[in-house]
């Protein structure tokens, strides 16, 4: 039982990241009809917003020791962060909580990057075939990750969670399963809650604001909304920016779970496309539901008991694709896709 609860938690946690990225992807596809292969790069750039802010907050004054030398004969450098020099303990706390500050930092950065990406490149490919869109956005993703690699190197850069969120929580003891039976990292629970808040926020924005209503109307019938004198293109550009922010924030909060590296976006990209297809192209609710569903399925598939049941054959890396194949064969529009989409 405890193993099952742990895998459900793992799945929900993994699914949170899938759902957030897939939500952004499907927002772009649903509004602009663009297949954006640079979306994984936005997740990676979000993560590097944390790295950048952490580095900025940790900017140090370097002094040379008068007494100590390195093994190669140069004076040892003494590093003291400026914020600690200026603000003492408050400065230390600022660095400690840099992941949270990064949320504030990442929102305008991702918005600008998203809008710049759409206005500067992607808008020229709206009327081109999907293959062209895939090629250009995939190329853009590679360019972006190579830029990050040139600046930050190829190795992962650890971003610890704030001290108060380090460690794990004994959920087993809380729900009466016994002490130390279900122990789960605190930050992963924070990530799940954060994802839930962001997803709820996006849905509320689209459902309860006039802007959101127009966007939804535009998604349903772009031409008619345009004929009503509404500049739907401008709103769709804003949605691209919003999608970039959602995906970037997913990356920001993921940094204590997975040390950021230049390639992390690509690791998620293909999986998230599968999530979108399973959920239904253009369906926001479908993307979220499929994200969590596939995250949980993937976690269960990696259990040793499942492997034993399948005579030693490991399916955790293929389960998502197997589900995608079954869905595409039996219900091409996806779990919650609109009737007619991908069914012709």
């Amino acid at each position: 039982m405890d193993a099952i609860i742990l895998q459900i938690l793992n799945g929900l946690d993994k699914g949170s990241a899938y759902a957030l990225i897939a939500l952004g992807l499907t927002l772009i596809f649903g509004t602009l009809g663009v297949v954006n292969f640079a979306h994984g790069a936005l997740f990676m750039i979000g993560a590097f917003c944390t790295v950048i802010l952490n580095k900025l907050l940790s900017l140090e004054m370097v002094t040379k020791s008068a007494t100590e030398t390195t093994p190669w004969g140069t004076p040892v450098e003494v590093h003291t962060p400026y914020v600690v020099m200026w603000f003492g303990k408050v400065g230390e706390t600022m660095i400690d909580y840099s992941v949270f500050w990064s949320i504030l930092f990442a929102i305008p950065v991702m918005l600008i990057i998203g809008i710049a990406m759409e206005r500067g490149l992607i808008k020229f490919f709206y009327k081109r075939p999907h293959a062209d869109q895939i090629l250009v956005t995939f190329g853009l993703a590679i360019v972006l990750q190579e830029i990050i690699k040139q600046i930050f190197g190829a190795n992962p850069i650890p971003q610890p969670a704030p001290d108060a969120f380090v460690g794990s929580i004994d959920i087993g003891a809380l729900i009466g399963l016994g002490a130390n039976t279900v122990v789960y990292p605190i930050w992963r629970l924070v990530y799940f809650l954060f994802a839930a808040v962001i997803i709820a926020g996006v849905f509320a924005f689209l459902r309860f604001t006039t802007f959101g209503m127009v966007v939804r109307a535009g998604m349903a019938d772009r031409e008619t909304v345009g004929l009503l004198g509404i500049n739907i293109d401008r709103r769709f550009t804003a949605m691209f920016g919003l999608a970039a922010v959602v995906t970037g924030l997913a990356g920001v909060m993921y940094t204590p779970i997975l040390s950021p590296n230049y390639h992390m976006g690509m690791d998620f990209l293909v999986l998230c496309f599968v999530v979108v297809v399973v959920g239904g192209m253009g369906s926001l609710a479908g993307a979220v539901a499929a994200g969590f569903l596939l995250g949980v399925l993937q976690s269960f598939a990696s259990m040793p008991e499942v492997k034993e049941f399948l005579f030693g054959f490991s399916i955790d890396q293929v389960i998502i694709y197997l589900v995608a194949v079954v869905i595409l064969l039996t219900r091409p529009r996806g779990l919650m896709g609109r009737k007619g989409i991908m069914e012709t």
Partner: peptide, 11 residues
């Protein structure tokens, strides 16, 4: 290619 090992750690 694995990046998240949580589902392997849990067992």
């Amino acid at each position: 290619s694995a990046t998240d090992f949580s589902s392997y750690i849990a067992p």
